[in-house]
Amino acid sequence: MDGRTDVRKMIQDNISHKANRVDAVMPKFLLVMASMSVLTTVGIVLTLFFDAFKFFRQVPLSEVFSTDLAPLSADPSFGILPLINGTIFTSLIAMMVAVPIGLAAAVYLSQFASFNKRKVLKPMLELLAGVPTIVYGFFAYSFVTPLLMRLIPSLGSKNVISPGIVMGIMIIPMVASLSEDAMNAVPDAMREGALGLGSTRFEVAVKVVLPAAISGIVASFVLAISRAIGETMIVTIASGSNKNFSFDITQSMQTMTSYIVEFTSGDAGAGTTGYYSLYAVGLILFVFTLLMNLLAQYISKKYREVY
C-alpha cells in the first residue's frame, strides 16, 4: 500500500494524456485571438489608406485644401477646409465648457468634498458619461437650441453653439475623472504639509496639488479634445450640414464626422469620388485623434513628477 506511487502515476498519466495537448494548443489559439485587435487596427489603416489614396489620385491637392466643398453638385468639388473649420469650432466650444467645469469638479471632488458627498457625486457624474451620444444629440437639438434662441434671436435652428455646449457637458465627466485621478496620485504628505503650514484648502489645491498633477491634467485635456473631434451624433443632429466656409457660430457648420454620416446615409455609390472622399476625411480624422492620443501619452509620461 504505497499511496505516493499512486499520486505520481496519476500525475504521469495526466502529463502524458490530452491535458498537455490542450496546453500546447491554447497559447497559440490565444495568441491568434489577441492578434485580432492588432488586425483591427491594420484593417482600419488599410481601408482608410487604400480608398483615401484613390481619392487623392482623382482630386488634386490644391482642390482638397480649398474652401470649396460641394460633393453632390454637377461639378463636384472636395475642399476639406470647411469641415476642419467646423470641427475646430465645435471642439473649441466644447473645450470652453468642459475644461473649466471639469477641472472645478475634479478639484472639488478631490480637495473639498467629504467622503460621503464624494460617494454620491462621483457615480452621478459617471452616469453623465454613460448616456449615449444620440441622446445628447436629441437634447441639444430639441432643448438647448430653442433655449439659446431666446437669448440669441439670430441663432439658426442648426448652429455650432448648442452642439458645442452639449458636447462639452458630455466631456465633463471625462476631464473630471482623469484630472481627479492625477490629483489623487499626489501624495497626501505634500497636502498635509501645506495644510500644516497654514494654507487654506484652495491654496493647497492651486499651489501644491495642481502643479504636481499638471501632466495628468493636461493629458486629460488633450484626450478630451480627441474625444470632441471624433464625436459624431451630437454634431450631426444639431450642427447640420452647411458646407460653406464661415466663422459664424450662430449658423450651421459641418464637421468631418457629420460629413461621413451625411454622405453614407445619403447613399453614395461605391466607386465614385464622393464615396472615396469619405475615406479621405476618415483618414484625416483618424490621424488627428491618433496624434492627440500619442501627445497625451507623451505628456503624461514625460512630465510626470515621481514621488
Binding site: G230, T232, T257, I260, G282
Partner: peptide
C-alpha cells in the same frame, strides 16, 4: 489606441 479611435471610423 484602438480604444480612442472615433466610432465613426469603425463604421467605415
Amino acid at each position: 489606441n484602438l480604444a480612442s479611435v472615433p466610432s465613426v471610423i469603425f463604421g467605415l
